[in-house]
Write a protein that binds this DNA or RNA. Sequence first.
RNA 1: GGCCCGUUCGUCUAUCGGCUAGGACGCAAGAUUUUCAUUCUUGAAAGACGAGUUCGACUCUCGUACGGGCUACCA
Length: 511
Amino acid sequence: MTREVRVRFAPSPTGPLHIGGVRTALYNYLFARRHGGKMILRIEDTDSQRFVPGAEDYIIESLKWCGIEIDEGVGVGGPHAPYRQSERRELYLKYATQLVDAGWAYYAFDTAEELDALRKEYEGRGETFAYNFKVRTTLPTSLSLSKEEVEERIARGDIWVIRFKMPENEVVKMHDLIRGDVEVNTSTLDDKVLYKSVDALPTYHLANIVDDHLMEISHVIRGEEWLPSLPLHYLLYKAFGWTDSQPEFAHLPLLLKPTGGGKLSKRDGDKMGFPVFPLHWVSPTTGETARGYREDGYFADAFINMLALLGWNPGTEQEIFSMQELIDAFSLDRVSKAGARFQPDKAKWFNAQYMHRKSAEELSAFYQPILKEHGIEVSDEIAGKAAFIMKERATFVSDLWDLTSYFFVAPTEYEEKQLKKYWKGENPARLAELREVLASIDDFSLENTEKIVHAWITEKEYGMGQIMNSLRLALVGAGKGPGMYDVTSFIGKEECLKRIDHLIANVKPLE
RNA sequence: GGCCCGUUCGUCUAUCGGCUAGGACGCAAGAUUUUCAUUCUUGAAAGACGAGUUCGACUCUCGUACGGGCUACCA
C-alpha cells in the first residue's frame, strides 16, 4: 500500500526565515510535487516567549517569492485546520494526559529555579544533570509522590509539567531516508518535557508528533539538528500506538558558514557581506534590519536554483534548473549527508546565468523601476531592449544602469583615459569624416550602419580601434559600453550626430 | 564531558569494489574583441590518518583524528 504523500514545512515564528529554512521548505515542496502529494504549512508557535510579531507574514511572503506553493495550511486553510499550533492548544493536553494514564509520562513539580540549582550542584561535582530514570523517583513527580499528593498539588495550583518517561536501557532502531539505520540506547536520553507550565502549551516534541499524526503527514523532512530527538519521536509514536502510520524521516544536512566553523546563523550574513534571509527584514521590536536576497537584486528562480544544489545534486552535470525541472529530478537519495558550506560567489554566478537567460520583456519589468529612479521615462520595449543588450555584462539588475545609462543620457564629461588615447592626432579629423559618413546613411539599422562604416574604414585603411574608440568617446564618453552599433542604432542618427558635434565643439584635441 | 551525525580539489559535488578520480564556482594563463564584459580553450587544485576484508578499496569494516549537531518548561 502506498500512501498519499503529505509533507509539511513547520517553522517557528521567532524571526525572519533563514535560507536554511527556505531550503528545507524547498526540499519538502519538491518532494511533494515530485510524488503528486500535498505541501502543508504549519506554524509552530508554541514558544510564547520567543514569538516575534510579523515573522509569520514574513515566512509566507518569503515562500511566495520563492515560488514554493502551499496546498494546505496557514493562510490557505484545509481539512485539518487550524494549522497554527497556538490555535490548537486545547488539543494537546488531552494527548499528554493520555500518555500519563498509559504510564508513558508523568507529572513533575520542580520549578525552573529548582532545576537550575540542581544543574549547578551537579556541575560543581563535575557531573552533568540529566532528568532521567536515575533521578525521576527522587524528585517531586507523580512517580515518587502518592496519588493523593499529586492530586492535591495539582488542585492547589502548584506548577507542573508533563515529562516523557524515557525507558531504561532499550535500543531504539530508527531509519532515516538520508542516513540509513540509526540505533540509540534510551539510557543515554532524558525525560523531555512534553507539556509546559509556563504557557500551558506543549513543547515541540508533543505538538509535532500529535499534529503530524492528525494531519496525516507521510514524510518528515527537516534539518539535521532534529536527529538527536528522533528516538523520542519514535517512542512517542509507539506510546500513542501510532507506529503503523508513523511518517518516514529524512534529516537534511545543515548549511554551514562560508568561513570558520558552525552552522549558518542569522548574525552571519551582514557581517560577511551577503544576505542570510530571502527578504529584507525589519524587526518590529528593535527596529534592526537585515538584508534580503530579493532586495539585493537576486532573481527568485536563481536563488532557488542555487539553494537546491546546496546539499542535493541531480547526478548529471546539469546546473541550471527551473522549478519544474527540479521537481522532475528531485529525490531524497541524492541528498548529501555532510553539511554544505554556503558560498556567496556561487550565488552571484547563478544570478548572472539567470540574467543572461532573461527575455527583454522579463528584464523590462525589473529595470523600469530603476530607470524611473533616474528620471528616465521610456516604454517597456525600450527599457527591455536596453537591458537585453547589456544583460551579458550584468550580474544584477542594479548593474544595468551603469551599463546602459548612455542609451538615455548624452555624455557631458569625458573620461580622462579615453580622451588621452583617442582624442589626439588625427582622431578629431577622422571623427569629423565619420560624422559625414553617418549623416549620409538612411537606413540607420545596426547591420546597415556596421556594413557601411566598416567598408569606409577598410577603404580608407584607417585603424579600426582608433575610429571606433573615438566614436565611443563621443557617444559614451568613456571606454566602456556595448558594441558601437548597438549604441548608434539605439539612440538613432540625430542623437548620434549631436553627440559627435558636442565633442568636436567642446573638447580641444590633446597634444 | 555525554550521545548522535559526518569527512573526495579552497568551496559545492560525481564516483554506489576496477580511477588516467569527472563537473561547477573561484583562481591563473591564452584565444576572441572597437571598450568593458561575455564566451571559448588550457592549467593548478582532492580521496583526513592507521589497520583490516579483498585479486583489487575513495568506495566495505574497525580504530584514531578532525568537523558538525544535540544535551532548555526553544524550536
